[in-house]
Amino acid sequence: MYILGQQLVNGLILGSIYGLIAIGYTMVYGIIGMINFAHGEIYMIGAYLCAIFLALCGVFGVDSLPVALMITLFFTVLITAVYGFSVERLAYRPLRGHGRLAPLISAIGMSLVLQNYVQLSQGARDQALPSLYSGTLRFGTAEEFVQITHLQLLIVVVTIVSMLALSWLIGRTALGRACRATQQDRIMANLLGINTDRIISTVFVIGASMAAVAGILITLNFGSFNFFIGFIAGIKAFTAAVLGGIGSLPGAMLGGVILGLSESLFAGFVNTDYKDVFAFGLLVLVLVFRPTGLLGRPEVEKI
């Protein structure tokens, strides 16, 4: 019994990890309708920055862990956001209004650039982060228990909170209104006095900040990263976002959790080799019956 419980917890955590990256993905998609393939790379840069700033805190003799974490969080989010902004400025803005494919290719190119830039700067080796904190919650007896570390719990909480916060931002604030206007009709939004370029930049900055938060939490959790993690995480997050209905924030979270649970349960009770086949198979099956994902808006065919 505890095995099933533990596998459900494993799936929930993995799902939250996918969801956390997928939220940033889906946010950008929701507003400008482009697949930002470089999002995974931004997340990877977040992971590197997290480790760099933690090490820097060590160099400057910041001993208190909470203080070091706050400093790291602040600078990582800030610099990652600048990366998001610059990527949009250099690779996507010149292509606005040229269909969906040109930015897609440019994004693939950008993701190669970022991967190789980090590899050249930081070296190709896997980087390690020592476990800074290892509190654990355990339920059950000494032999048979279900456990979740505090850090994993934090990931779940942060994913839910970010999902709610961004939903609020999009649904209830002036910025969110401007975002939605930009998404529906860019030219009209422009005519109504919305600086759509600025709105899109802001969306990219928010997306990159989410990637930075994901980068920090996931790096702290697994303790290992390299310049290639963004690619794998990006594909999984993209899958999660589409499964939930791309553009929908609760959908990204839901898609992530379903993906995580299905991978964990399949790996745990059937076979690890085929867990990705199962996850993608499930995706295809869901999309056959709901062609716009679980929570995606059904496409209205205009006549």
Binding site: L90, L95, H98, A102, G109, L112, Q115, N116, Y117, L120
Partner: peptide, 21 residues
């Protein structure tokens, strides 16, 4: 050598911006 893929990615972005269609 190791700048190879960096340049390749840059070339993809540049060509796309230069000739978007």
């Amino acid at each position: 050598e190791n700048l190879r893929m960096l340049f390749f990615g840059m070339a993809m972005v540049f060509i796309m911006i230069w000739r978007p269609s």
